[in-house]
């Protein structure tokens, strides 16, 4: 079956994400847009994944629990998991690698940890908008060792992308690649190139997505679908 996939979204926990980007609203808006498999991928942090799970259950969307990790090379990589526990555990490890720089909400925005109703439970103190002390190679191996999916984000973006920061794509065991303009990617290294909305505002949700042929709507179906690579893009 052909499903609608969007594996790149931020919530109000990401400083650059709007305060209105509640995990619950992300799920509801994605449901409206017909997304079948949806990931929440805040910068370097997994603390809004729990309300995201609850909301996806209500919306009958398959949740994928992720983070957008900012590596030592200043490259953004999506690290995605089947279970909330695995994502949270890896998230706590990533948090511990963040430098001790306090977020200044006036300059960078709030880092709100919320519940399913959008009530602010607490705020995350350390700045999430920075590189954490892990290499690209270690993000790949650590994610794969936890049965996760690892996808370099927006590889064709002019900043914080593999191609801009490194100038080439190191030969690592990526699960797929994400691009803003997948049709223009010449060197895919035999990987499936997906498109994600990288939503920071409610109106961004579903602005980019892709269709993927899968056997079933499940994490295993997604994993196999990415290997099979029958992907198509919005016209």
């Amino acid at each position: 079956m052909k499903i609608k996939l969007d594996l790149h979204n931020h919530s109000c926990l990401s400083p650059c994400g709007s305060d209105d980007m509640l995990p619950s609203l992300l799920a509801f808006e994605a449901m409206e847009k017909g997304i079948d498999i949806l990931a929440l991928t805040d910068h370097n942090c997994s603390r809004n994944l729990e309300p995201f799970q609850e909301a996806c259950e209500l919306c009958q969307i398959l949740p994928i629990f992720g983070m957008e990790i900012n590596t030592i090379e200043d490259v953004h990589v999506l690290s995605l998991f089947k279970s909330l526990n695995d994502a949270q555990e890896f998230g706590f490890y990533i948090e511990s690698l963040l430098p001790n720089i306090k977020n200044d909400p006036r300059l960078f925005g709030n880092q709100n940890i919320v519940d399913i109703e959008g009530n602010i439970i607490s705020t995350f103190e350390k700045s999430l908008l920075t590189t954490c002390g892990i290499t690209l190679e270690d993000v790949v191996s650590e994610t794969l060792s936890r049965d996760g999916l690892v996808i370099p984000a927006h590889i064709d973006k002019k900043a914080n992308s593999i191609l801009a920061n490194l100038g080439f794509l190191p030969d690592l065991d990526y699960s797929a690649l994400e691009a803003i303009r997948p049709q223009d990617i010449k060197e895919t290294h035999n990987k499936t190139v997906i498109q994600g909305s990288d939503a920071h505002y409610l109106e961004h949700i579903g602005r980019r997505f892709c269709y993927l042929e899968v056997d079933e709507i499940s994490y295993e179906g997604l994993k196999k679908g990415l290997i099979d690579g029958k992907v198509s893009y919005k016209k």
Partner: peptide
């Protein structure tokens, strides 16, 4: 300041 293996490749 790019102290990692990929700098060697470059």
């Amino acid at each position: 300041v790019q102290a990692h293996k990929n700098t060697i490749a470059v």
